[in-house]
């Protein structure tokens, strides 16, 4: 049984630890699951040209990104034997130390959970039209570059 229902990916502001804990708790009824893998992206205090990043402001081409998230999800369900997956990404301002990406994959066995989660995170980073503006203490900014 797979859970393919569509949910909204974008969350305004940081993703809270309470939200993540609640998401985990919601899976206790799904007793076919034997392994969860969770990836959390956290805003890092990068030092760029002697200035420290204090926050990232995320923006996205939301309609296109939602379509792509849907396509990526469908392909992951075909490729791996997983039970369910959830993706949440922040929009707007997220301070350093706060969570901006929450990817949650559940499977019967750990290998599928690990492999699918990693694949999912890499695809989200490479394929979805989302941009981060790194804000410094003095309110100046640079546009984030992904590795």
């Amino acid at each position: 049984m797979t859970d393919k229902k569509k949910h909204k990916v974008f969350i305004q502001g940081a993703i809270t630890p309470t939200f993540i804990a609640d998401s985990i708790a919601k899976h206790s009824g799904k007793t076919a699951i034997g392994a969860h893998d969770i990836f959390l992206g956290q805003v890092r205090n990068d030092l760029i040209d002697n200035k420290t990043v204090v926050a990232i402001e995320y923006s996205a081409y939301e309609e296109m990104a939602e379509n792509l998230f849907h396509e990526i999800r469908e392909a992951i369900f075909v490729k791996y034997d997983i039970v369910c997956m959830h993706i949440y990404h922040s929009l707007g301002l997220v301070k350093t130390g706060e969570i901006c990406l929450f990817v949650f994959v559940s499977a019967k066995h750990r290998k599928d959970a690990f492999d699918a989660c990693r694949d999912l995170v890499e695809q989200i980073k490479a394929m979805t039209p989302i941009w981060g503006k790194e804000i410094f203490e003095d309110d100046s900014h640079v546009w984030k570059k992904n590795n």
Partner: peptide, 10 residues
């Protein structure tokens, strides 16, 4: 038409 600079989500 959308003009998309390199993505930097996550």
């Amino acid at each position: 038409v959308a003009l998309l600079p390199p993505f930097s989500g996550g």
